[in-house]
Structure formats: C-alpha cells, structure tokens
C-alpha cells in the first residue's frame, strides 16, 4: 500500500553555474584580418562572383557560396549606419554606458561593428538624436595593436 502525500513541502531550487573555457580557431582568413588590424589596416575580401568587398575579410561569401581570395584594404573613414547605447555590463568588457555601431567604411560592401568613442552620454537621448543622421566617422587605432577587434574604435569626424 502506498503512502499518502503527507504535508506539502516547500519547492526546492538549486543554483547552477556553467564555466567552460573554449579555444576558438579563427582560421586563416580571420587570422590574417586580425594580423593586419594590428598593423592599422582594415581588410576586406572580394567575392569573385558578386564583387562585394566583405569586411571583416572572410574565407567565403555567404550569398554566393564561393571562396573569397582577393584581399582589399578599405578606408578607415566611413559612415555610422546605425548604433545603440548600451547599459548592460559584462565581465571583462568596458563599463557602460557604451555606444556600439555598424560603420560602412569607404570601399566596403558590408558594415563593421565597433565602439564609437568620445561621445558625451550624460544625456543619452540627446546623444542618440545627434547620431541618427549617419555621421561620418574614422577608425582610430591603438598605439600598439594586439590583433583583436578592439584594436580600434570609431570616432566622430565632427563633434555630436
């Protein structure tokens, strides 16, 4: 004979934590892209079929499904196509608020993401409104490159 359910018990919860270390392989194309970045050059790869210059440079074109082997240096100047002002903090990353945006560099056919520096964020609404008009920006590189996407940030060509 089975037991009755008895007195209700408080629901049990336990904490869990995943902490895994990964090693991500960048591959030849991305390795070269980041090596060039450390030297202050932003590189794209041209698709032989659609002729688009994809930045960051990559090994193949998604749309055409062909290898991209022609490397093209693009300008550090471009247009801030869109952005957002972040308020979320992540371990190991700069403290918010941060402006991050996609820039279409001159000579490129795809936009590249990075922080946009030097903007007064005391009034986020005012800062955001000033950036809506697709302002011109320029990539500003660190003095010593590390071969990472954070080797440069974008800065406005004219104050917001």
């Amino acid at each position: 004979m089975g037991e009755s359910a008895g007195q209700p018990v408080p629901p049990l919860t336990i904490d869990g934590h995943w902490a895994f270390d990964y090693t991500y392989y960048a591959g030849d194309a991305a390795s070269r892209f980041f090596a060039e970045l450390a030297r202050g050059r932003i590189m794209g790869s041209r698709c032989p079929q659609c002729q688009r210059v994809l930045v960051p440079a990559r090994g193949f074109c998604d749309a055409c499904f062909v290898e991209t082997t022609e490397w093209v240096e693009v300008s550090p100047h471009g247009t801030l196509e869109t952005f957002t002002i972040l308020t979320t903090s992540f371990p190991g990353l700069p403290e918010p608020p941060l402006v991050v945006g996609y820039v279409m560099l001159d000579g490129a056919s795809s936009a590249v993401l990075n922080f946009v520096d030097g903007i007064d964020l005391a009034d986020p609404d005012a800062a955001g409104a000033a950036l809506l008009g697709r302002p011109p920006v320029t990539a500003r590189f660190k003095d010593v490159g590390e071969g990472r996407i954070t080797d440069f940030v974008f800065t406005l060509d004219e104050p917001a």
């Binding site: 990964y22 979320t88 945006g101 809506l132 990472r148 996407i149 954070t150």
Partner: peptide, 20 residues
Amino acid sequence: PFTARPLALTEIAVSGMRAA
C-alpha cells in the same frame, strides 16, 4: 567571439540598432 562578443553585443542591442 571574435567580432561581436568583445563589443558587448546582445539580441536587445541589435534590436536597439534596428530601432535607431
């Protein structure tokens, strides 16, 4: 991990960029 995570990208952040 190479081009987006170091720049604090999240799903909400992308929506923010679309909204802007």
